[in-house]
């Protein structure tokens, strides 16, 4: 274990902390370290959210376990039955993966909305999910795609649904020493899947005031086999609207007219539980859920119809 001190007291920097620093060579070593060091040890991925928390003294730690160099978690691969995204894949890697699969193209477009190009080279997919912000751009898309997360622990791996992974604002299903390993997006064995994400923001660099993602899986004959609609920034966790998605299943693409898409939006907005804050009022957010859901579904239909 190396030791480092960042102690720029006073006028030059905003970082004022003293901690031990470790650079484990493998994920298992990282977990072991965490188990030895306990509560006051934190994993450090891209650090883009952690730095802010640290600056605002919202977190303190005695030990930094730097996992940035863990290549074993830094990958994006397309398999016949799934897309696997390593937790340490950077947002910029995801952004550059659009060619590999059309769902990755959807995700790539989402990353372009996130922070700035500079920050995207640091920020990681896993870090974004572990921060568990209800306004996260990736989370609703992963939920709509029915993604699973793979979690590494001292006793091996376990899998959790993306929706179940989020337990509250900044709260996830990770326990103790556990480390996020991978996001797995299942691909349909037959037919086609399409997904789309829409959000309301203010300027080019912003977080979503309200967002929604939809995913539709259709059979070769154009019948909708699966539908999933996820909403962000309207509750402490990502909301999955069964009421909006369910009526779509069994329909054909051609049957999905404007009225049906609008009805899905209406149903989804009833599932949203937005608050009013400096960014937007609850009423506006609820109204925009209707528009975002309708538009994201229309995007999916358009993609599937080619």
């Amino acid at each position: 274990m190396n030791e480092a001190v960042v102690d720029e007291s006073g006028t030059d920097g905003v970082m004022r902390a003293r901690f031990d620093y470790a650079r484990p060579a493998t994920a298992q070593e990282a977990i072991k370290l965490k188990s030895q060091l306990g509560e006051k040890a934190r994993y450090w991925a891209g650090g883009t959210d952690m730095t802010l928390l640290w600056q605002r003294s919202e977190i303190q730690f005695d030990h930094c376990i730097d996992i940035r160099q863990l290549d074993e978690l830094d990958y994006i691969s397309v398999e016949p039955d799934s897309i696997r995204i390593g937790a340490m894949a950077s947002l910029s890697l995801l952004e550059r993966s659009a060619e590999a699969h059309h769902l990755l193209a959807t995700l790539s477009d989402i990353t372009k909305l996130m922070c700035t190009p500079q920050t995207r080279t640091l920020a990681t997919v896993g870090g974004n999910l572990c921060n568990a912000s209800p306004a996260s751009d990736l989370s609703p898309a992963f939920v709509a795609m029915n993604a699973q997360v793979v979690i590494l622990g001292e006793d091996g791996e376990r899998s959790v649904g993306m929706f179940e992974f989020f337990e509250g604002v900044n709260k996830t299903a990770l326990r103790g020493t556990e480390l996020l390993k991978e996001v797995t997006i299942p691909l349909p064995s037959a037919g086609q899947i399409a997904a789309s994400y829409r959000r309301i923001d203010r300027t080019v660099v912003d977080i979503a005031l309200v967002n929604a993602a939809s995913a539709l899986t259709v059979s070769d004959s154009g019948e909708i086999k699966k539908a999933s609609i996820a909403l962000g920034a309207v509750a402490p966790v990502i909301v999955r609207s069964e009421a909006a998605a369910q009526p779509l299943i069994g329909r054909t693409l051609d049957e999905l007219d404007d009225a049906m898409l609008a009805a899905a939006g209406e149903a989804a907005s009833k599932d949203a539980k937005p608050i009013s804050d400096v960014r937007a009022s609850a009423g506006y957010r609820r109204d925009m859920v209707k528009v975002m859901v309708r538009r994201s579904l229309a995007d999916c239909v358009e993609q599937l119809k080619g």
Partner: peptide, 16 residues
């Protein structure tokens, strides 16, 4: 002031 930060005080960026 409730938005004394550049996250919620929105300035246009060049790309806007």
């Amino acid at each position: 002031i409730k938005n004394a930060n550049l996250l919620d005080y929105k300035l246009l960026r060049c790309a806007d």
